[in-house]
Design a protein around this nucleic acid. Sequence first.
DNA 1: TTCCCGAATTCACATAGGTTAAATCGGGCG
DNA 2: CGCCCGATTTAACCTATGTGAATTCGGGAA
Lengths: 248, 248
Amino acid sequence: MNSNVAVSVPGGDVWLRRLSSVVSLSRAAQEAAAEIMSLGRPIPARDHIIRDGNRETSIKVLISGFACRYKFLPAGRRQITAFVLPGDLCDFGFVSSSPASQGVMALSPSIVGAVDVDRFASIVEEYPDLMAAVLRCAAIEQNATQELLLSLGGRNALQRVGHLLCELHFRMQSAGLLRDGQAFDLPVTQSELGEALGLSTVHVNRTVQTLRKLGLATWRDRVVSLPNPPGLAALSGFDPAYLKSEMA
Amino acid sequence: MNSNVAVSVPGGDVWLRRLSSVVSLSRAAQEAAAEIMSLGRPIPARDHIIRDGNRETSIKVLISGFACRYKFLPAGRRQITAFVLPGDLCDFGFVSSSPASQGVMALSPSIVGAVDVDRFASIVEEYPDLMAAVLRCAAIEQNATQELLLSLGGRNALQRVGHLLCELHFRMQSAGLLRDGQAFDLPVTQSELGEALGLSTVHVNRTVQTLRKLGLATWRDRVVSLPNPPGLAALSGFDPAYLKSEMA
DNA sequence: TTCCCGAATTCACATAGGTTAAATCGGGCG
DNA sequence: CGCCCGATTTAACCTATGTGAATTCGGGAA
């Protein structure tokens, strides 16, 4: 829309924008990447996008909506290991030809783009930068997982929630999905937040209210607003460096 | 020793064994991989193997010893994100041409092998299976991180410690490093265990003693012994599937 | 042998966060 | 308009784990 690159599929630009943000791609590589992506049918909230253990034949990219990656503990508790935002790849199993090691579920109505793994492999031969881009995305994803690990291992409830809100805010901003000043859509339940942060629903609620009182975050009607991002970042120890790719 | 493959460097077999365990490699590929590895000088306990943020020019493989990957929280607390055993790669940053996102420190006197990244890249052109093997290793590593995330998010102290001991036992076994029946070396301090599991030193101690009383684990003089592995696995919800590569 | 030091252990006490259950809110639907 | 149901909120109570500090243990150095 803002450029005249041929985008054969609506929504393909989300995928291109993501790849280009981590590796600078030639026009030809971009066109090749755009051509092999196709859109799937809309997926309602709570439906699976990928089932744990499934050997996927296509690379799935979230085009719009909101999803999460998760695993189950033997006890039955579900641990959300990552939130998937538009532009994110749903699973990186294909990089090592492994089946998905975790499930991916839509948290709000979503649209997913699919790139056939074999077709991707064949254009990668001509445009190896595309593989580099995917590997960079995988590395960032890995960093985010580790940052969550840091939260669970060493931050208290207030910091955990604050840190996650900072991260989502930053990523939504990067994706161009901020509503106006500082607000963004968070179509997630407080209980689901708890499943990511290792906190009970009740305590997530207490914590969110404390953030409200501190004037650091508002969350109403599935919309989060951060009146004072630097303040929240300071409280929670958020530093977005881990979400950026080193374009060195 | 048990085969007549030329191993140009002592210790190179640890590296080869690891690669071969995730992807079956041709004799030629094995020889090529062995040739480009060189051994570094011994590293004393508590020394850095990799410094956070450093752009490594070589792939580092732990040949012998024991190490950990870690990050610091702004508060100063250190979070260990993974234990590195002989045969493991110390850092996967080179896969995405990124600098190391975490530090790696020897926990006991260690020897590290180095493979120049550029030389590796050049032989990968001839033996792409080598890259596949490295990516598989990265995927397993990623799985282990997520399993730790599950521990911190949803397991209590007893299960966390038990699960970690099960994992180390399994990995030491795979590396052929079990002493006799079920015992293995764990040259780590209780406080360091706590840094990995998000527990205080005191509580790690309490927990280890409980495991002793339950007859599920003994840990004395840096040697861990598991009298009843299935029992401990059941208690802690350990399933080694996440450590295996799907050779499909 | 004795000293010394880091690691393991023990103890007393404090608290963040879990649990259970009930109350309220808000929107979709008949 | 009134009902229903999931999500949020509140409340009372409970416990797993943290904290701080002292004690013991075990092995290396003098």
